[in-house]
Design a protein around this nucleic acid. Structure first.
Lengths: 179, 179
DNA sequence: CGACACATGTAACACGTTACATGATTTG
DNA sequence: CAAATCATGTAACGTGTTACATGTGTCG
């Protein structure tokens, strides 16, 4: 649903056609979130079906191929609501890292969990190094693009959080301590 | 795919039937990751189809309803590989929070982005409070279950990371500073 | 026996991804 | 004109979610 809401946000600025939405979406995300063209059109279809978006009556004059869409009142409300919304409340995390550690825990004593945690830590540290290296090797214009920097920050901050979590898991396991 | 890999990990300990897999999966994740029964069976079908799992020849004697499955050699390899694997390399983050901030940026000057960031920050702080409150109100046995604590930690650490990221975004926007 | 937990499924839908098909317009 | 870009779509598949259907075993 994330993509659908994103398109609604873009449509707040005025009518767009599908290809244009794809291009603008990618520009706004600094090329870090490529969209599939097909997905744009099927998503638009669903948005039309559900009343968030409608086709513009008089098609584009300069290019007959273009089929612009605009927000309905409902769509405008949804876009505003989505921007302000905070998702993922108290529901437990459902990601591979958490699942790996939880499932490895107590498989055969704490050893298996330790092995998994160590392997993940190595991999994440390696990822952090790569991220920092990549950040240093980009061209200046790109490095100064705030959107690109924010996207990069997001990755780095999340990776650091995962490392911190692994440390916490280690503590918990030691405290339970059989070994 | 996460669930499929999780089932493979559980099957390393020996043959299980579908219902049993669901129950054990939920127990191992301390009830934080409920599985839909239907999903278990369709996932098992796909795993059989792809050669990671096979039906046990002689069905369970004590209960004719049960249809136990076991790992194939291929499945055992996949489980081991998955446990050691680190996912999400250098691909940019694709989550709602990142998308909201990036799309809100430069919508109409930095103001819209600021509003979105502030709203998200408020919501995330509220979530952190709820998490800590919830942690304090659980019963003792649950609070001492390491799996439950790890799951709770995971949520908290991630939320803190998101808050840190929002602060970084604020900095970047100020530095670009139009106001 | 009747209720409830155990156990296996099917059907329909939402969303995302990949690949492909098909034209129109612009530009060298 | 030919090639590249613009523009709109369809088809197939993987994964997850919800809801429903159906039957067997156990226990009060």
């Amino acid at each position: 649903m994330a993509v659908a809401d994103g398109l609604l946000v873009l449509l707040r600025a005025g009518a767009h056609h599908g290809y244009q939405l794809k291009a603008e979406f990618e520009e706004r995300t600094a090329g870090t979130w490529p969209l599939n063209t097909g997905q744009v059109y099927t998503t638009l279809d669903r948005l039309v079906r559900d009343g968030f978006v409608e086709a513009v009556d008089e098609p584009d004059e300069t290019d007959a191929r273009r089929r612009p869409y605009r927000l309905t009142e409902l769509g405008r409300e949804r876009a505003a609501k989505w921007l302000a919304q905070v998702d993922g409340g108290l529901e437990p995390p459902r990601d591979d890292l958490t699942m790996r550690v939880l499932l490895a825990y107590d498989e055969d004593g704490p050893d298996e969990a330790r092995r998994v945690i160590d392997a993940q830590r190595q991999g994440l540290l390696e990822r952090l190094r790569s991220l920092r290296l990549a950040q240093r090797t980009v061209h200046e214009e790109e490095r100064d693009d705030p959107r690109r920097r924010m996207a990069a920050d997001s990755l780095a901050v999340r990776t650091e959080a995962e490392l911190r979590w692994l440390d916490l898991c280690d503590e918990r396991i030691q405290r339970t301590g059989k070994t």
